[in-house]
Design a protein around this nucleic acid. Structure first.
Lengths: 243, 243
DNA sequence: GTTGTACCGTTGTCCGACAACCCGACTACG
DNA sequence: CGTAGTCGGGTTGTCGGACAACGGTACAAC
């Protein structure tokens, strides 16, 4: 086989600036909450103009590695699960994923997550979940916005309770992806509150009883039930999730 | 309750530039592969200096919404699943997630994914999976790098075959998160190739037989087995995944 | 047909300047 | 004493202009 050459890579300065600072952050040479030097100082230390430094900073900013602190100085940040989830969801939406794909992911991930919760939840976490369900129960069946918030509150409490940032990020991404559309569906489904309440109650008691299989089953049914609302509302599942 | 005021928001121009272009991209007014105007033209159209435009462009760049095309002009891009997964993994690593969390996520997600594969895979997809396993089988038990690549090839083929970009993104994130460390583990485990081969063969035949439960079980065992390698290698699972 | 050359448009980088703004210190006033 | 003005220094945000580096194209030369 003939030898082929790699294209030589020329790296713009602003990218080098980004890489340089990123490396120091990822290696913890710049710990969380450190305030970075001023742009002028950075430009002196790195030997490039302030313009290039600023362009590099924009990249760091968008990557969630730094943020503006109290004054205006840059501060090293660690990305929160919520931020990562939001960014990922945005990209996925823009990538054109369909409702079908999101629902399949929900059906795949959430039942297993419920099973895990049944196994690992401490009594006070079960209590939190119970509070979430009670919160839903107290609402008027016509207050659709509040019902949606409460329904997601249950999922959110469950996700947070798993105490696992990887799973949390994934579950939150899914939540974000369906939240908007599910709100529309619930607004059109008269018995929504009742059905959600019953399903979540069943899931709750399965988790309380530490019954993996049951929690998984009921969560699967719950997701399925929510999904059915889309058919009823006439939403085509093969369409991209909109923004 | 006393009335409280929202902090007044001052939006820098470069952010407005970002939002403006992002909005046009997300709404498909700028479809994929569109070449954007030159920086000078953008600065004229938007009424700001080129510097501000450039800072906005860096944000778009990092968000994966645009990329440099053939020449050097900016081209509208849609984020690929791989990009999103890479970005998410990076953030999670920087967030300090532990091996424990990653493995729990793997054990939660992959068995369900295998079950889904058993249900949905077409014969030619099963064939692809089989090729992946055969590929592994052909390797020398000492060629650790190749074994790692082949093992991940199986996971990758399975993830792609699901034909679901949401799940693909999540599964790929997990792959990236353990890839480096798993390579180290496999290098230290003599019987690694054999054990991986057997597990993946079992999973394959379960999928071929369209047996959800069996595929799920074997995948769970496979993941468990891989995880055990960490204990043997003396890696503390409560430590953060390193970079 | 390949190589050399010249030109042009675009990006990358630099410089210098200034307005807007945050913050701390200090003063004046009630 | 405490609150509201005022001032000055430090920093970011924005501007404009300048030029080198590079990609692409067109054309001539070998």
């Amino acid at each position: 086989m003939a030898h082929t050459f790699q294209p030589v890579k020329r790296v713009p300065l602003y990218l080098k600036v980004y890489k340089a600072i990123e490396a120091d952050i990822l290696s913890h040479r710049l710990p969380e909450n450190t305030t970075l030097p001023t742009e002028t100082e950075l430009s002196e230390q790195l030997g490039v103009t302030r313009s290039s430094v600023r362009e590099g900073i924009r990249l760091l900013e968008q990557a969630g590695l730094v943020g503006r602190g109290a004054g205006k100085r840059l501060v090293v940040k660690r990305p929160q699960a919520g931020d990562v989830a939001a960014a990922a969801s945005k990209s996925l939406v823009h990538g054109g994923v369909t409702f079908q794909e999101v629902w399949q992911a929900l059906s795949t991930l959430y039942p297993s997550a419920a099973a895990l919760a049944a196994e690992t939840f401490a009594p006070n976490q079960v209590e939190d979940l119970g509070a979430s369900v009670a919160n839903l129960d107290a609402l008027a069946p016509t207050d659709h916005d509040a019902i949606v918030r409460a329904a997601f509150g249950f999922f959110q409490t469950l996700a947070v309770g798993l105490n696992n940032r990887v799973l949390l990020t994934m579950l939150q991404s899914l939540n974000i992806l369906i939240e908007a559309s599910l709100a529309r569906v619930i607004a059109k489904t008269p018995a929504a509150k009742q059905r959600i309440y019953e399903a979540q109650t069943q899931i709750l008691s399965a988790i309380k009883a530490q019954d993996r299989g049951l929690a998984e089953q009921w969560m699967a049914r719950h997701i399925d039930d929510l999904k059915r609302g889309y058919d009823v509302a006439g939403i085509d599942l093969s369409e991209p999730v909109d923004h």
